[in-house]
Design a protein around this nucleic acid. Structure first.
Lengths: 288, 288
DNA sequence: CTCTTTCGCTGACTAGAGTCAGCGACCGTG
DNA sequence: CACGGTCGCTGACTCTAGTCAGCGAAAGAG
């Protein structure tokens, strides 16, 4: 019924099976007397409400289209729109009492469908399915993490760098303190808009060499290969900028990171700076 | 990032991840200058051609709608329609040279997308993803197998029974022969229209007892729990028909089946018929 | 040879989803 | 306070997907 004929074939086969049988979960939003698009907006507003612009971004809808959907929901008494107190141009959408009821209806309809799908399976099979889907979920998310260079003024960089510092302070025996953010080029990895990894690249006095700084991966994402991807990305950037060697320093307590650097082809070198927190120094020659 | 909070939550979470990121595989049919529906029909016709009725069944389309889509494809020079030589009412659709070219384009577009998706993953991760998706595929297929009672005249019953007989003939030391199909109630399990399991229920002289016959599961589907599901289904049918006990006979060579009967609560009983092929006899009391 | 089905096609619709240009209210900057 | 830009809304569209009733040719049953 299935033979191992490559990852893309497996993926495409799964895609077919999936859209035919579970895709219906999506259309479970239908059958509530409302068109799918309207229900999706209703669901996305959620119990806590949401700004119109946020909805537009999250659902990737045209401004005019969303506006019409919202006014329909308002007419139906499911949604209340009020101006954003902080910015008179914006509007906030929130569910009315019957809107919340409709939201719960969508929720339970989707839950029912999921239950009905797994119902024919034995407990053991359900467990296997849950494991397989959780694994697939993690890997698909990891695969679709987007890396992009951002200016060091980007709030997400400050946020990620702050978490980096906080973690080092917790892990380093004598704590860790850092005042200003290094200038340099930063690469931010995001998933669903959330920062999940950060990496920085800085020029050194020696023009041929770049230094990798501030490598950080969100704790929940460790082991998903993000660190290596970030490293490769930074190396490519360094090579493109004309460097033929990258260096980095780290601390002996960061054992996972050290293992990753070694797997990625980095080798130990002598101390090249006077960073008091650094104990180990690595370098890698780039083959362009 | 993910906590174990039940199979339905995992399924729904995956569903969200999936539709956002892999769902695009489906829409890869877009961007070819043709609407999605038209491309789907084109793809489904395939390189070997297909009858119009077959397409209607497979894609679950309205007769009139499909007809229009096909004539559009014919106008565009991608499809040729000719009458079925065996039945003048039917028509066969097959791809022209440029139709085949368009088909390959869809194929490679879909392949590209799949490749691009798994590209950021390491070989080890790709393997894990392939495993997870293959497992999920199997289980989702198993979960969505449909069991339905069919008349014993149904060609699918004859087909499945034929495979059953052929397999027993191969596995039994002295072969197996069976002339007519027993009358009785048959339950057929199908996946994508293909028969994947069969089971029969027959009344015995003793009115309280029903006999389960012709239990067969497609070789590719064994281990997916279909046998147990079929058994449960037949038991429910027997109970609904007023029986409080089911019996069955089997042969010592069918070790997997015997293990399944025992797991399902069947216990050994004395021989109750003169079936020369039967060596072992089982019974189960139904608690209604 | 009739009568009934089946098969695919045509015409006439509808709802849903989305696009695009432009508008008025409002914000932040210089 | 002028001005460019942002935000959401409105009107006028388009395209896709699909439904439904009915029709004529062909096949199968009696």
């Amino acid at each position: 019924m299935h033979q191992d004929d490559g990852i893309t074939a497996t993926l495409r086969r799964f895609n077919r099976t999936y859209t035919q049988r579970i895709g219906a979960l999506e259309e479970s939003f239908l059958g509530t007397g409302r068109p799918l698009g309207v229900s999706r907006v209703l669901y996305e507003i959620g119990l806590h409400g949401a700004g119109v612009g946020v909805l537009r971004d999250r659902l990737d809808l045209d401004s005019g289209y969303l506006s019409r959907v919202l006014s329909r929901l308002e007419q139906d008494g499911l949604v209340r729109l009020r101006p954003d107190p902080g910015d008179g141009r914006r509007r906030l959408a929130e569910l009315t009492r019957s809107g919340r009821q409709a939201w719960h209806e969508l929720e339970s309809r989707s839950e029912d469908l999921a239950t009905r799908l797994v119902d024919p399976l034995s407990p053991r099979q359900r467990e296997r399915l849950a494991d397989a889907l959780a694994t697939a979920d993690l890997l698909v998310r990891a695969a679709t993490v987007a890396l992009r260079e951002v200016p060091d003024s980007d709030p997400a960089v400050r946020d990620a760098a702050g978490r980096y510092v906080a973690e080092l302070a917790r892990r380093f025996p004598r704590g860790f303190a850092l005042d200003a953010l290094d200038t340099g080029r930063y690469v931010l990895a995001t998933s669903d808009g959330e920062p999940v990894a950060l990496g920085g690249l800085r020029e050194l006095a020696d023009p041929g060499t770049a230094e990798i700084k501030r490598m950080w991966v969100h704790p929940a994402w460790r082991g998903a290969g993000l660190g290596s991807r970030m490293l490769r990305h930074l190396e490519t950037m360094a090579a493109a900028a004309g460097h033929d060697r990258v260096v980095l320093d780290t601390n002996g307590t960061l054992v996972e990171a050290i293992a990753m650097y070694e797997r990625a082809g980095y080798h130990r070198v002598e101390r090249y700076n006077d960073n008091p927190y650094a104990e180990l120094f690595f370098a890698k020659t780039l083959h362009s």
